[in-house]
Design a protein around this nucleic acid. Structure first.
Length: 601
DNA sequence: GTGGGAGTTCTCATTGCTTT
DNA sequence: AAAGCAATGAGAACTCCCAC
């Protein structure tokens, strides 16, 4: 037992506990880490325990205030004497706060709170998150004290993560002793991160040097600095100001890296430069760096164009009432679909007029605030690059959606700007930087700001002409989509017709019906036999089933099969799966179905 | 603290089989 | 023919351990 424990127990007049503490090998470090459970185990007598708890609490509080005072006075000696206390209560390691910042972290927090344990997979994730924060705050070479502080803060917050080493946090971090290296999950991860970062910074010797050391003569940073910055950006999201500064400094390198050895895919680019998606405005910043003369052209001209569009929309009575805090630019963008003459198209042999919502989606897909982006990217039908806006009236967030990635932008206008070719360069910022053409339908807008519209003096006619032209282009897109759809339908029908054959049932004939089972609506099985009473149409039959709530009901022939008394049944019919509640939707059966047994579309 | 080897885990693309 | 699904394998990323 060390002197510290002895002194404290004597001071608190609890020297009868000396033997127990000695037996349990409680030293200064573990003394300060004692929690309620450990105290209960060490001190069975309630009176003594309550006294101990009171003093222990006061000690920790005093240490906390002492630490602040010491730091302000730079009293190094005092700090040293209370090192352990300061690390226990290190204010920088608010574990819950550190984990609460991410979805995975919150998931681990809830697991720890509920189950008081974690799986090895969760442990690895936990270590990853903690080390990420550690590097963010203290760099990749934090001192041992800091790492101890983190490990102790962790088990202080979650005692269930204690291990059976003497310190109870050794599995998380064990300082190096007697020429043995430091170890523990945190240290290992830290080492791994360092190893990876250094391998990124030091390219392999056989690789051509110029690939990763590209810099134009006007760049102020050395190739070494650039490599370090790229590695840092790969591992760190925060602080935002530093990320922005480093992204700015590495823009030339990034542009050349992306273009070297052929073009890269968006996924490759985002793997190498993940910060492009984290912070809005990163692509615009790159474009500004590389092409200052072309950047912002749309931003400059848009107010004048927007003004014209809004006036035209007002005159036509085609503008929605929107809140005052929506900028004219945004209002104009939203008004555009309403101005387009709706072009008619054929769908299933019928002439269809597209809805405003459909026209709107062709410009900007607006989803409600709070839309799950991951889910959206998974389920989105529009594989074309497009602009996604969260919020219908007040835009909360905007993204450029490309190849299953959502790149956040500062504003709706910026999102539009990214995919629209610039007049002076002939390319969109995205394409020019990354060698990959986005070509969303919005690039059609380009002609408008290429035309000389200055200070609101442009001709209104040009806007009207543009709107009409835009409508034609969109109709072209839609016709193409419709054509593709029809082709797909034809192909499907050909296949279906090959597999299908005409079946006919007679009144009085016994049949089986494919119905949801009694145990689960989602499972269907053949039930019956029942009797066919009427033929309603070539494919619909009325069936009599006296034991059901509704005695007579109409079924599609695909849900019926001939019932034979022998074990040999008729050729199987197409299985219907995931059928909605058939009993509720009997009326639906009466409608002429367009596709079945080779008679339909 | 660094470097590196061995083994494990994870990710992603490909392939083949089955079902429709 | 197309779609869905599971098995498979390659390579990357990682952990663990050891020597210096």
């Amino acid at each position: 037992m060390d002197e510290f424990v002895k002194t404290k127990l004597n001071e608190w007049q609890l020297d009868t506990l000396l033997d127990t503490f000695k037996e349990q090998e409680v030293d200064e470090e573990s003394f300060l880490l004692l929690d309620d459970a450990a105290m209960q185990h060490l001190i069975p007598k309630i009176g003594q325990r309550l006294k101990f708890q009171k003093h222990h609490k006061e000690l920790l509080q005093a240490a906390c205030s002492t630490k602040d005072q010491c730091l302000s006075e730079k009293n190094v000696e005092t700090v040293a004497s209370t090192t352990l206390l300061t690390v226990v209560l290190h204010p920088e390691f608010a574990i819950r706060q550190m984990l609460g910042g991410s979805l995975e972290g919150r998931s681990i927090l809830s697991t720890l709170d509920e189950k008081q344990s974690i799986t090895s997979k969760e442990r690895k994730l936990l270590v990853r998150l903690l080390v990420s924060h550690l590097i963010e705050k203290h760099g990749e070479m934090p001192p041992s004290d800091t790492k101890i502080a983190l490990a102790m803060a962790l088990i202080y917050e979650f005692p269930c993560l204690k291990d059976d080493t003497g310190s109870s946090y050794g599995a998380w971090y064990t300082p190096g002793r007697k020429h043995r290296p430091a170890t523990g999950f945190l240290e290992e991860r830290l080492r791994n991160v360092r190893k990876r970062m250094r391998s990124l910074i030091r390219p392999r010797q056989q690789e051509p040097q110029e690939d990763h050391a590209v810099l134009t003569p006007d760049s102020l940073s050395s190739p070494q600095n650039i490599r370090e910055m790229v590695a840092w950006l790969k591992a760190n999201k925060y602080p935002v100001s530093e990320v922005e500064a480093k992204m700015k400094e590495t823009s030339i390198h990034r542009s050349k890296w992306i273009r070297c050895n052929g073009s890269k895919t968006i996924s490759e680019i985002l793997r190498e430069f993940p910060r492009l998606t984290d912070n809005p405005g990163m692509i615009s910043q790159d474009f500004q760096q590389l092409h200052p003369e072309a950047a912002g052209q749309m931003f400059e001209k848009w107010p004048a164009i927007a003004d014209k569009i809004l006036k035209y929309a007002q005159r036509e009575g085609k503008i929605n009432v929107v809140p005052d805090d929506v900028t004219p630019g945004e209002r104009a963008l939203k008004a555009l679909p309403n101005l387009l003459p709706p072009s008619l198209f054929k769908r299933g042999g019928k002439i269809v007029r597209p809805t405003t919502a459909e026209s709107q989606r062709a410009f900007v897909n607006m989803q409600p605030v709070g839309t799950n982006i991951v889910e959206y990217l998974t389920n989105v039908e529009n594989t074309f690059p497009h602009v996604l806006s969260l919020g219908h009236e007040r835009v909360s967030q905007t993204f450029l959606v490309v190849e299953g990635h959502a790149i956040e932008t500062d504003s709706l206008l910026e999102a539009v700007d990214l995919e629209v070719p610039q007049a002076s360069t002939g390319f969109s910022p995205f394409e020019l930087l990354y060698g990959w053409d986005v070509q969303g339908p919005l690039d059609l807008l380009r002609k408008t700001w290429e035309s000389p519209v200055e200070n609101g003096k442009g001709k209104e006619g040009s806007v009207v002409h543009f709107v009409l032209e835009m409508g034609e282009c969109l109709a072209k897109y839609r016709d193409q989509a419709e054509m593709n759809l029809q082709q797909a339908q034809r192909a499907h029908k050909t296949w279906y017709d090959q597999q299908a054959w005409q079946r006919e049932l007679q009144p009085g004939q016994k049949v089986l019906i494919l119905l949801p089972s009694s145990t689960s609506k989602m499972l269907t099985k053949w039930q019956g036999p029942f009797e066919v009473t009427r033929r309603m149409s070539p494919v619909n039959y009325e069936v009599y089933h006296p034991d059901r709530k509704r005695k007579r009901q109409v079924y599609h022939v695909n849900l019926l099969k001939e019932w034979k008394t022998s074990s040999v049944t008729s050729k199987p019919v197409a299985l219907a799966v995931g059928i909605p509640d058939l009993w509720e939707e009997a009326e639906m059966e009466e409608e002429e179905t367009t596709k079945t047994d080779g008679t339909g579309t």
